[in-house]
């Protein structure tokens, strides 16, 4: 699996993401700097987590307007798979690649803990290594993960099976509408999620529940 990881000033989960991709796929991802106008031919583009541009204006707002985004959008339109985690999810929403918005946590507190996720749709390219309704553990670390979409958008997400993950068993850490933790676009090639699967991929992390995401993505290259 050939992967590109986008780098922006203020991200801090990029190294974890690169390590996870390398460990699961066996291949070193290429990195793309925010001002690059070209993204190499890859199977998967990942926008990692952190605090790009210090969360100025709105989380992900400035990053989503940087030059790399034009190339990323063109690739996504062509069907290349894109995954945004945490700040990466915020960036993909700000860029309009996914519907809705992420707002300040309902508690107003930064949450850094482990939650439980329900795999709502196990038929996506990012979740096929899981089974539907499976409950997995996953860490979260964010201040603005409170997913919001208007009633029409929410219904479209529900009816279109576009909710990939929900917070399970009362572990919703941020007030997200319908307990949404991760969504996928209509075409099925762009996923955004707040939790950090890259931080639970080997026994040293205390579990491997996040590994399935990367193992699922391996099939993108094979397909």
């Amino acid at each position: 699996m050939k992967t590109a990881v986008i780098l922006l000033p203020g991200l801090n989960r990029d190294r974890d993401m690169i390590a996870a991709i390398k460990k699961v796929s066996g291949q070193e991802p290429v990195t793309v700097w925010q001002t690059d106008t070209d993204i190499p031919d890859v199977d998967l583009i990942v926008v990692p987590g952190g605090f790009s541009y210090g969360d100025y204006l709105r989380c992900g707002a400035i990053a989503a307007r940087m030059p790399f985004m034009k190339a990323l959008k063109a690739k996504a339109d062509k069907g290349v798979h894109v995954m945004g985690v945490c700040n990466g999810f915020q960036i993909l929403l700000e860029a309009g690649l996914l519907p809705g918005a992420l707002m300040r946590n309902a508690s107003l507190k930064f949450v850094c803990k482990e939650v439980e996720l329900e795999v709502v749709n196990a038929k996506t390219a990012f979740t096929s290594a899981y089974t539907k309704d499976q409950i997995i553990r996953c860490p979260v670390a964010h201040h603005d993960g409170n997913y919001f979409a208007d009633a029409k958008t929410l219904k479209a997400l529900q009816d279109g099976d576009q909710i990939a993950f929900r917070y399970a068993n009362g572990t919703n850490p941020n007030g997200s509408i319908d307990d949404i933790a991760g969504i996928i676009n209509k075409k099925g090639n762009v996923l955004g999620m707040m939790p950090h699967p890259e931080n639970l991929i080997e026994s040293a992390h205390g579990g491997t529940d996040g590994r399935g995401l990367f193992e699922s993505a391996l099939n993108i290259a094979a397909a």
Partner: peptide
């Protein structure tokens, strides 16, 4: 429209 407001919210 393009930056200062997120017209979703």
């Amino acid at each position: 429209e393009k930056l200062l407001a997120n017209t979703v919210i």
